[in-house]
Amino acid sequence: MTDLAAIRRICPPPSTGQTTPIDWNAVETELGMNLPEDYKQLADIYGPGEYCDYINIYHPHAATPWVNLTGPMPARIRGQLQHDSDQGTHPVPYPPQHLFAIGVTSNGEYLFWITDPQQTPDNWRIAVNEARGPLWYTYDGTLTEFLTAVMTGQTTVPQFPRDLLDPPISFKPSTAPPTDYPQNPPRPAVDTETIREWARANGYAVPPHGRIPLDIKDAWEQANRP
């Protein structure tokens, strides 16, 4: 069984016809680099959305620029990593120019391709940083291999919550329709500590660490819509 087939078995994708075709030539031209084939197949099948109510893989058709593969976040995050490396704020285990952000978790960890060597994207490995700390985790395999290993419990990422695999394991498609990159993008993602503070002030029981329950995130979004 291939890794993509394993992901589809563990975490069923949306029904056929619910995803929008992707012009990969245009995406790769805009990024100035070729992309791993396993990622392109995953994005074609699943579309934009969230795995296990926690892992959001960047997608060319994401509803907001903050989780869009061709949006501002990969370059912005790389710039922050370069600043951290230059200032010694947090150790960065790889040259920042070889790290391309490919996803984000509900807790604020980022997933990266280690794009070295850049000419062989199908061999790129995966790195995960700590949301508010120095810890890094490296997975010696592709994105789909990483997701398979995580969702089957074969790999435990120290930064991820212990209840990540509580059933059901599912994929939640983005509810907003794909849009072009807006001239005035919506406000960026809010730090999870802000949501925790709001939840406590409004009588919700929220864990101090790890995944914020989906009903609390939904309530916060409803209460803080512009």
Rank of each mutant, 00 (worst) to 15 (best):
M1L: 12
M1Y: 07
M1V: 08
L4P: 13
I7T: 07
C11E: 00
P12N: 10
P14T: 05
T16Y: 03
T19K: 07
I22S: 04
D23T: 09
D23Y: 09
T29F: 04
E30V: 03
L31D: 09
G32S: 02
G32H: 03
G32K: 05
P36L: 09
E37R: 15
E37C: 10
Q41A: 15
L42P: 08
A43Y: 13
G47S: 13
G47M: 10
P48Y: 04
G49T: 13
E50R: 14
Y51L: 15
Y51V: 09
D53I: 01
N56V: 12
I57H: 09
Y58V: 02
A62G: 15
T64R: 05
P65A: 05
P65S: 07
P65T: 06
W66P: 11
N68W: 00
L69H: 08
T70A: 08
G71D: 06
P74G: 01
R76N: 13
R76S: 14
G79W: 12
G79P: 08
L81C: 04
Q82Y: 06
S85K: 13
Q87V: 04
G88A: 12
T89S: 11
H90A: 04
V92W: 05
P93M: 11
P95D: 02
H98K: 15
L99H: 07
F100P: 06
G103Y: 06
G103I: 11
T105E: 13
S106T: 12
G108T: 05
E109I: 08
I114V: 15
T115E: 08
Q118E: 13
Q119C: 01
T120L: 12
T120A: 12
T120W: 02
P121H: 01
P121C: 02
N123E: 14
N123V: 01
N123W: 02
W124I: 07
R125P: 00
R125K: 14
I126E: 05
I126R: 04
I126T: 06
N129W: 05
E130M: 08
E130Q: 15
Y137M: 11
T138Y: 00
G141S: 06
T142A: 11
L143F: 10
E145W: 00
L147C: 02
L147D: 02
M151R: 07
T156I: 14
V157D: 12
V157E: 11
P158R: 12
F160N: 04
P161E: 04
P167W: 01
P167E: 01
P168S: 02
P168G: 03
I169C: 02
S170K: 14
K172D: 08
P173G: 09
T179Q: 15
D180A: 15
D180M: 11
P185M: 05
P185F: 03
T194H: 07
I195E: 01
G203V: 08
Y204V: 01
P208W: 00
P213A: 02
D215V: 08
D215W: 00
D215K: 14
D218C: 01
A219Y: 12
E221G: 04
N224V: 10
R225L: 11
P226S: 13
P226K: 11
